[in-house]
Design a protein around this nucleic acid. Structure first.
Length: 490
RNA sequence: GCGGGUAUAGUGUAGUGGUUAUCACAGGGGCUUCCCAAGCCCUUAACUCGGGUUCAAAUCCCGGUACCCGCACCA
């Protein structure tokens, strides 16, 4: 089993990602995407976009900096702030809400004052050392932006979703009032995690892709749910099952067709990105772990280093956000369709790209019998589709190879070039960064304009005409060439 | 945040008070008409940061920062 350290070491050594600001000692919870990681991330985002485009999604881009009023309405200002207490003797810190519930309080208060009352009336003790807790304070998980304005407070957004919610009316016009309407956004979000860990898994600044799907509440059904492959589902009411999405919906395991459709679409998106479906499951939230805006939620979880990590959350947000924005802004956000006036309901698939990328690396990584490391990335996501290699540097072979490299890049391919070291060493280098094809220019090329094309996973080679490689812009980006080389005799 | 541990080239490491700071891999240059990290020659590159003790600190002490393991947290 591939360990976390192995992936982190490879990521740093080969230039996928590394800790930010390490020159100055580093900053906890922040990572840089290095040259290869930034290509890989773009490719994963591109697959994500194309996948949800299937469901008719349109894409927008809204600010990271968000006024307090929006977050007040969305509930983040209140619910995102934990009320905590610190033990006066051993300095252990507690989230008071859960501690107080354990002590038999069924409706914990929502204010600092409320908790102070409880601490005064009840004897709540530090579970570590037994000292009585007395003080309560607020710990906000959002980053406050300091600015010169006295008139309103600004925060960095804790999710990209609100940028879509607050634009609902404008978007609905753009979408010509049709439902369901899917609007998506990719961007950075920020959460002031108490203890960020595990590399890209829990960062303070992270890459999100959220799709808000707005439904007419009287026609919440998604028009078509595909039969689908069997997948692992973990409902909150019973044991894990293997079921196709259509059957899971028909049998009521997944309650509404919008959720069902997007669970399936998300599974396909992850598979295209390189997540192994045997190490993917969908788990339904228990009632007590639902977010404040959510009434039902299925998480896509990916197995990494023997731990299930949430990479996408598909949440039923109902009309919570729009209703709250209507209430707090005073603007009417309802729409009228066929004479009916309503506030739409929302299903939201929310992806964490940094986590998906980490899972993709985990699942792609393997070692050959000779100990060489390989990233078996899908052709669609590999940072480079191909590498052009001159067999020798002399006799004009380098020049010929450079020329081919430029031509391939001109055909919109992500192709690199390497003439340093022995040919075997260069193949191994490309294997380790997941490049699916190596194109070698040799003496025969000088005579007949053919090259060898080596496929990463089989290490097989075929000879092809340069003209054929240049015929289609996407020749390296699908599995056709891969299967062709693998099935060859050489 | 708490408790414990750790911090030396790009990576993995040796180094218990005085070393030109060890070794391997990786990297760069060269030789070999060279197709799977071969070989040979040359070469770049490090003591986490700030204080202190000492004639002398990578080494001992204090603090910061970061990482790892547990606990807590993860809306």
């Amino acid at each position: 089993m591939t360990g976390f350290n192995e992936i982190m070491e490879l990521a740093k050594r080969r230039g996928f990602f590394w800790q930010s600001f390490s020159l100055y000692g580093g900053l906890n919870g922040f990572y840089d995407y290095a040259p290869l990681g930034s290509l890989l991330k773009d490719n994963i985002i591109s697959i994500w976009k194309r996948s949800y485009m299937e469901a008719g999604a349109v894409f927008i881009d809204t600010p990271v900096v968000t006024p307090e009023s929006v977050l007040k309405a969305s509930g983040h200002l209140d619910r995102f702030a934990d009320i905590a207490s610190e033990c006066p003797s051993c300095h252990a810190k507690y989230k008071l809400e859960s501690l107080v519930e354990k002590n038999g309080v069924h409706n914990p208060p929502s204010t600092v004052e409320g908790f102070k009352e409880i601490l005064k009336d009840m004897e709540i003790k530090c579970t570590a050392c037994g000292t009585r807790l007395t003080d309560a304070y607020e710990f906000n998980l959002m980053f406050r932006v300091t600015n010169n304005s006295e008139t309103f407070n600004l925060y960095l957004r804790p999710e990209t979703a609100q940028g879509i919610m607050v634009n609902f009316k404008l978007l609905s016009n753009f979408y010509r009032g049709k439902f369901p309407m899917a609007v998506a956004q990719v961007g950075k979000s920020f959460r002031n995690e108490i203890s960020p860990r595990q590399g890209l898994i829990r960062m303070r600044e992270f890459n999100q892709g959220e799709v808000e799907v707005f439904f007419d509440p009287e026609h919440e059904e998604w028009s078509h749910i595909p039969e689908g492959e069997k997948m692992t589902l973990v409902p909150n009411s019973g044991p894990e099952i293997q079921e196709s999405i259509l059957n899971a919906f028909k049998s009521g395991v997944i309650r509404n067709s919008g959720l069902a459709y997007f669970v399936d679409l998300t599974a396909r998106m992850l598979a295209r990105s390189g997540i192994d479906s045997k190490r993917l499951r969908f788990r339904q939230h228990r009632k007590n772990e639902l977010a404040h805006y959510s009434s039902d939620c299925w998480d896509a979880e990916v197995l990494m280093d023997e731990e299930w990590i949430e990479v996408v959350g598909i949440s039923d947000r109902g009309d919570y956000d729009l209703r709250r924005h209507q209430e707090f802004s005073g603007e009417n956000v309802s729409v009228t369709v066929d004479g009916r006036t309503f506030i739409p309901r929302v299903v939201e698939p929310a992806a964490g790209f940094d986590r998906i990328l980490t899972g993709v690396l985990f699942h792609a990584y393997y070692t050959r019998d000779n100990g060489n490391r390989v990233l078996g990335l899908p052709c669609d996501v590999a940072p480079y589709s191909a590498c052009v290699l001159p067999l020798m540097k002399k006799d004009g072979i380098s020049e010929k190879a450079r020329e081919l490299h430029v031509k391939l890049v001109g055909h919109n391919q992500s192709v690199t070039y390497d003439e340093s070291g022995s040919i075997g060493r260069r193949y191994a280098r490309q294997d380790e960064i997941g490049t699916p094809y190596c194109i070698t220019v040799d003496y025969q090329t000088m005579e007949d304009d053919t090259v060898t094309v080596r496929e990463r996973d089989s290490t097989k080679q075929i000879r092809m005409r340069i003209d054929d490689l240049l015929m289609h812009d996407n020749i390296f980006r699908n599995d056709g060439l891969k299967k062709f080389v693998q099935s060859s005799k050489s």
